[in-house]
Structure formats: C-alpha cells, structure tokens
Design a protein around this nucleic acid. Structure first.
Lengths: 139, 139
DNA sequence: GCTTGACCTGGAGCGCGCTCCAGGTTCTAC
DNA sequence: GTAGAACCTGGAGCGCGCTCCAGGTCAAGC
C-alpha cells in the first residue's frame, strides 16, 4: 500500500500513480498524458512496469502544475522540461522563459482586477435597480 | 463608409460589422458566432441584410467581452443574455450570476497572485544559480 | 453598367487539453 | 491459487471556442 519496489540501491521512497493523483489533484489520465507529451521525463517503473514517482518527480510536477494554472500552454511547458533535462547550461533560457511568463502573468492579473472592479460596478448598478426598479436598464 | 441605412424612424447612428470588429477586437467570425450562439440578440439589418450595430448592442458586447475575459463560459453568457432579454423580472437572477462570477474571479485572482509570487521565488532561485552555478539544481 | 470589396449563410474543420476505451498485465489479500 | 483492484498501452473521442470555407448577395466608386 505504501512504497513498492525501490529503483536505486539506497532505498528511496516512491509513490504509486494513485498516490500522486491524490497529492496533485491531477487524474491518472492526465499524468500519463503529461508523460507521453514530454512534460515529465519517463518516470521510473517497477519490474512489473508500474510507475513509481520519486520526490524529484513530485517537485517538478508541482511546479509544472503552477505553470499550467497560470496559463502556460502545454507546448511551452514541454519546452521548459526539455531545457531542464539538458542541464545547467540551459538555465539562462529557462530564466528568460520564466521572466516572460511572469510578466505576462502580472499583466493578466492587472487586467483581471480591472475587470473585477468593473464587474462590481455592474453589480452595484443591479442592486440599485432592485431597490428602486424601472429607473433605467442600460445593461 | 460611415452609418448606412437607419433602422428606426428617429435616425440612430449605427456601426457596420467592420467598425465593431475594430472597436471590440473581436473577429467578424466571432461576432457572427456570438449571434448564432445566442450571446447577442439578432442585431438589426439593413434592407440588404447587412448587420448594423446600435449603441446598445455595443454596450452589451463590451460587457459580454468582460465576462468572457474573466472566464465566464459561453453557455453562462448565453444564459445571462436570455435573462436579460426577458426583462426586469430577471434582475435578481442576473445579480446572483454576477455575484457568483465575481466571487470566483476574486478567488482566481488570489490564486494567481500566490502562483505569481511562487514564480518570482523560482526566478530568484535561477538567478542565484546563474551567479554561483553548480550549487544545487532542485528544479 | 461594372468592378471591387464588404458582407451574407450554413456548415465543416481545427487546436487545445484532456478523457475515455478496449484489451491486457500485475499486485494484494485471502 | 484465485478474485478483484490497480495498473499498463495505444489510440480514439470529446467539449470548448472559435476559424475557415464555399458560394453567394450587396454597396460604392468610376
């Protein structure tokens, strides 16, 4: 129920896919899809070919989820993952990607806040309309 | 090039679809799609069956765009549009929709800000890695 | 009157990001 | 050793939100 076959000689605790599903909120299918799509390196297997996720896999997964949740497209995440797997000489390029993504994200947040306050105004408008109806019905 | 045939007796200025494209940033196809999909009531036509958008159409379009940009699905926008077309007795329901949408939006903004600052941390990490390389490579 | 560009319609197609399926293997508990 | 749950694979399917296309009609300038 807990760890399964170790993959390397000094026993490192690993997680089954079900446990990763539980921890990340991703589905089995999404996890397999991410692997197939190259967002995750091929994760280690037991002798019976079942996935065993290591702590490093989890850490990357969690970062990847953040990238996705902030709107980075699959293709870009894959690019980032490829850079990562090529080692330290790709750090500058990865940094550039993150900076660009961060800038876009901050911009989106600003836009959302503007929209949110416009929405509040509309809500206020509706509330006034409810209190004294029939006054105007612009929207 | 400017206004086209009026639709009602006291001449109200109207916009061609090209002018609406320019003002809203939506494409011709998207505008027609929104109409087909019921997000916009059938807009007035010239005798030659060409669309002419009135100020009220524009105002609704701009609000609709805000709803879409803040992530409201097409189906919900259609629902809202239907309520709108049923008149003032649907104001409470519309208000409820907007309040719920606003709450979700604020929650999303909060999450994005958390993610954005986690992203900054990761960027800092990469910057340190660039300054004194080889120290660690967790992500 | 003719040309050219803007506009119309219905319907097919597409990119994204999963999600589901069939058919098989493996693991766990008894 | 066996039942049942968990896992595997390749590939098809799907929901969303457009976007494109074919085959026309309409409008404005010369």
């Amino acid at each position: 129920m807990s760890s399964g076959q170790p993959l390397s000689h000094p026993v490192e605790p690993t997680l089954t896919i079900a446990q990763v599903v539980e921890r990340t909120g991703l589905s089995h299918d999404t996890l397999r899809y991410y692997e197939k799509a190259g967002l995750i390196e091929r994760v280690g297997r037991t002798t019976g070919n079942q996935r065993r996720y290591r702590a490093a896999d989890l850490a990357w997964l969690e970062f990847l989820i953040r990238l996705r949740e902030t709107g980075m497209p699959i293709a870009d995440v894959r690019r980032f993952a490829e850079l990562r797997s090529r080692g330290d000489e790709t750090v500058p390029e990865r940094l550039a990607m993150l900076r660009e993504h961060g800038a876009g994200l901050r911009e989106r947040i600003r836009a959302l806040r503007r929209d949110a306050s416009a929405l509040e105004d509309k809500i206020d408008h509706y509330e006034r309309l409810l209190e004294r109806p029939g006054s105007d019905d612009l929207i």
